[in-house]
């Protein structure tokens, strides 16, 4: 899915567009969770094509995406996000979308539209 298709499917808002053309970028997979160590362990292949879906609206979800070379975070449940976090996202060149849907709904919608799961040969 492209970033634009993700935005439309989720009725989402693009809170931060900080790097090159995320709306035209094609994403192949997503990982959802609020435990950043899980994300750090599971997202090993093509992270730049993987979307992080989380309810964690704090610097640590941004740091996690940065360490993994991801560029798109989808914040679920319509959470309020601090202005400083948005500035931090800009400085880290991360794109942030926000949707009103819960994590479960977000995953279901994107999966049904063709966004896949990540594949890990040795998760633990």
């Amino acid at each position: 899915m492209t970033g634009a298709e993700i935005l439309e499917a989720l009725g989402a808002t693009a809170l931060v567009i900080a790097n090159d053309e995320p709306l035209e970028e094609h994403y192949s997979a997503a990982f959802a969770g609020d435990l950043m160590s899980d994300a750090l362990m599971m997202i090993q292949q093509s992270p730049e094509k993987t979307v992080l879906i989380t309810g964690l609206a704090n610097p640590q979800s941004l740091n996690t995406a940065e360490m993994l070379d991801m560029n798109l975070i989808i914040l679920v449940r319509g959470k309020w996000i601090d202005e400083d976090i948005l500035k931090l996202a800009v400085s880290k060149r991360l794109n942030i979308f926000k949707t009103k849907y819960t994590m479960f709904e977000t995953c279901g919608i994107l999966y049904s539209k063709g966004l896949g799961a990540i594949h890990v040969s040795d998760p633990a």
Binding site: L35, L40, N58, Q60, S61, T64
Partner: peptide, 14 residues
């Protein structure tokens, strides 16, 4: 804050 899953050191070693 999203940590404390008990995966930190195993992750580092990996």
């Amino acid at each position: 804050l999203g940590f404390g899953a008990g995966m930190g050191l195993p992750n580092i070693r990996r």
